[in-house]
Design a binder for these strands. Structure first.
Lengths: 199, 199, 199, 199
DNA sequence: GATGAATGAGCTTTCATTCAT
DNA sequence: TATGAATGAAAGCTCATTCAT
């Protein structure tokens, strides 16, 4: 029999590698993650990894793109799904945010950040990703504004980037070990202040 | 001639190692920094490094402490020196902030952050450091409040942690390559909103 | 559709593999030639290679035989075709020689030579090949002698092996980068001296 | 005590590495020689090899230069020492030649030749080396001429390169397994013809 | 104390070969 | 028969650490 082109199979294997890689890179960072670990975790031989990705960096870039794409999708869902008043529900919003992060995407983001100072390609990926996130949040604010929850503001783009930065900063605090309750309150206080005060 | 060994001399050498290490770890991160590099940059032999620090991790912890201490001092100066109205001068404040960061302390902070997920001792250092920063900012806000620039607020501690987080997040944006003008405006908009809206 | 398997087809495929292999081994040598390269160049899958040849060494031996056979044929043509006076036309002869070599057979010869020190089977192939070349040249000299261009000589066999060795040595010089004009003159001077001086 | 600079020691170790490398590369060729082998044979750790040579290729280049230098010296001795009539003693000369080659320099030469097609730096080394050999032989012929053993010849340079090429070609034959007696006779016949027939 | 040559465990990567389809 | 994904042994190379001087 002539062999069929198992494009489906290759995609499945690639996905398995990516998943294992996300886990490993999240836990151990780029440098300390061993290709051995990844292949073991994906239940594949080390050689197979190199049939799918040119080298470690290539794999890392791929999982960054995938991981960031996932994050973007998650944020998009979160923002478009929740049509509630952000100001009143700030704390609930934070909790939902954090739940998403637990799935591993946040840690990869910080790994990518550290790595990006030595990897221009990665820096570009991160840059573009950030712009998309800004846009997602800005659209969300526009909706909140349309619904009358917040005032329209000529600075909506800056408000959006401010909110994203605030969230990144609090995630940093969270990573360091600042208690979640404290972080949640910090978020709520800042968000309420920012959104109540639009021009 | 063989060098004389005095306590003074030891301190001087230790300082030189720390300085070189800060530079190297800032540029290349923990894993990619070679002990060779550091010793070369400090104009010492590799063996001498090990007379002053037990191993690479020990050295990294030491420079983190030193580097963070420096950052704390810098922030303290910045906050106690500038008795202006933070709201009106938000952009100027951001610029001064950034100037401090350029001296290398910021990058070490993010390196330490990445490393801390694998290094409990380092995590504790970062945790305590963060609390100190929060306190510095809180005191500053109290002064601003005393001077009538901002309203007193029962949530001053949370406002302080929010400001620190906001700044960390914007520094992240800066590292990724978001233009400084954009970041500055983001900062100004958020800061004005937060501080104008205290209860 | 699955390809039909006919004896004709098998021979055609085998030929394609040999051709690709000659090219690859000529360019990169035994060790640095990848089975991937050969299969790609022959527009076949890697697995198919192993249906025709047991392993890399087996394939190399096969192409050596083929390549050397070709060289023998080329030399035979050259020697039997040119009925001119070798002494007078030594330089022209060298040029014709070189033209043949350009087709890739020479490089394979030196690859085989290097490889033969570790491959007894290959050494035997090369040994037998060399004897045949000696014979081809000896016959040629006999013809030249019959035609009165050179004296008959009781050492004709040694003269033949001398000429072959001289040519190999000059090919070595050519590989190293000694200019062709210099090599040609070297050849002409030596050939004239050798052939003018037969007993 | 302050440590002394053990330049002497480093030279001694470097020499040991070179010696082991010559042996290994002679026996197994460039590609098949393992760095492990060399270090083992030199009774050193693999890491130490890399303290003395940047990488495998660097080491190979170094041993080529060393090995070729040695060959040049050997040839120089041979040619300046033997003030006999080369024509009458051609066979003896060949034997002395071969004796030198047995010491390992010849095989490295052919290894280098094969490798040089992929290594421009090496090609240059071989090229320059060859020119030097030509010169050594040319000088020798001049002396033979001065002593009246051979005629002066306007083509002495070409005669020299012819002799070198002849010798290389016969060495090739020797590597392939052509019997030494046959090679010796080939040499004698060709040498006598060439040198008896100078203009 | 200061040195730097030596170490060797451990990493990334390669590639001839196999075999289920 | 043809395929090409999977394999895994083995290679080159790195670098934190040690220790005799």
């Amino acid at each position: 029999m002539c062999p069929k082109v198992t494009s489906q199979h290759k995609l499945e294997v690639r996905g398995r590698i990516i998943q294992s890689a996300i886990e490993c890179f999240s836990n151990d960072g780029f440098d300390r993650t061993r290709m051995d670990e990844i292949s073991l975790s994906a239940d594949l031989s080390k050689g197979t990894l190199y049939n799918y990705f040119e080298n470690k960096e290539d794999l890392f870039n791929a999982i960054c793109e995938d991981s960031l794409d996932l994050l973007k999708v998650q944020l998009h869902h979160l923002f478009t799904k929740s049509r509630d008043d952000l100001i009143s529900n700030a704390e609930l919003f934070y909790e939902n945010f954090q739940k998403l992060q637990k799935e591993g995407t946040a840690k990869v983001f910080f790994e990518a950040l550290a790595e990006s100072t030595r990897n221009p390609k990665l820096q570009k990926i991160l840059f573009n990703h950030r712009l998309k996130i800004y846009k997602v949040v800005e659209n969300y604010l526009q909706i909140q504004s349309d619904m009358g929850f917040i005032k329209a503001d000529r600075n909506l783009a800056y408000v959006a980037s401010g909110i994203v930065s605030l969230f990144d900063g609090i995630t940093t605090a969270s990573l360091i070990g600042i208690p979640e309750n404290y972080n949640k309150k910090t978020w709520a206080v800042a968000i309420k202040a920012i959104l109540s005060n639009l021009d």
